[in-house]
Amino acid sequence: MNYQAPTTLKDAVTLMQGDTGNCRILAGGTDLLVRLRSEMEEPDTVIDIKRIAELDEIAEEGGGWRIGAAVSGVRMAEHAALVAAWPGVVEAMNLIGSTQIQSRATMAGNLCNASPAADSVPAMVAAEAVARVVGPDGARDVPVAEIPTGPGRTSLARDELIASIFLPAPQTRAADAYLRFIPRTEMDIAVAGCGVWLALDAAGTCTAARVAVGAVGPTVRLVEDAGAALVGSKLEPDALDALAEACSAAATPIDDKRGTAAYRVHVAGVLARRAAVIAAKRAGDTT
């Protein structure tokens, strides 16, 4: 294995382009090193992007936030303005693994690992986050929802990498939340997860909502019916029931060591309901 630590994005792309074998990007490494260890993966080249300064920053951009691909979860948690703008995305990121994992794991890495159970992805999809993909032909912006194409698979070309993720400018009386279910209180992979973004009017009526579920299908899924169930409501029980039903209906999970399919279907709805209430509370608090 060949280890490279370029200091510019251009060098990183050149390295990827010139590599004929199996080349992997190393950001936080919290997934990649596990795969190396278990010999599931034996790359010829590993490109460490943490020495590229522009990928290692959280930058304000038109009221939104651009988060570099090398930025760890703890750096996001420590960024007060980012937390205020996108509390759900940050809490989703911070749910991943232990304190130790948080020092290393990155949101772009969580996305590119393409696990159906990735915690940050439903939150990003609900937030309409956009990934900036860089390759030999330059940069292109891709909605986060379009990056994973299946378990372990992404829409990136072999010589492309994600340089950053952009979270749009927050709206007034709008907020997000993310919840997941795990058997323990920490350290597990999500059995089901749900990210909710919603906006309220001055009277507290929901004017827009996006709901995404994770770990209940091959990829994270934006559930349009679930968002629609909230719009026009003040999150009354009926609306929350409809939200939960829509999320459960959208779930197409499998039975595995982490939970049964039936359980995941049920819990996806429970989480949606609880996350929506949190998001609405936050949205109300922003005024």
């Binding site: 280890y3 630590a5 190393l26 590993v46 460490d48 943490k50 290393r104």
Partner: peptide, 13 residues
């Protein structure tokens, strides 16, 4: 200054 698992970081890093 950051707490990490040494098993999840390459020596080269």
């Amino acid at each position: 200054g950051r707490l990490v698992c040494a098993c999840l970081m390459l020596g080269a890093e």
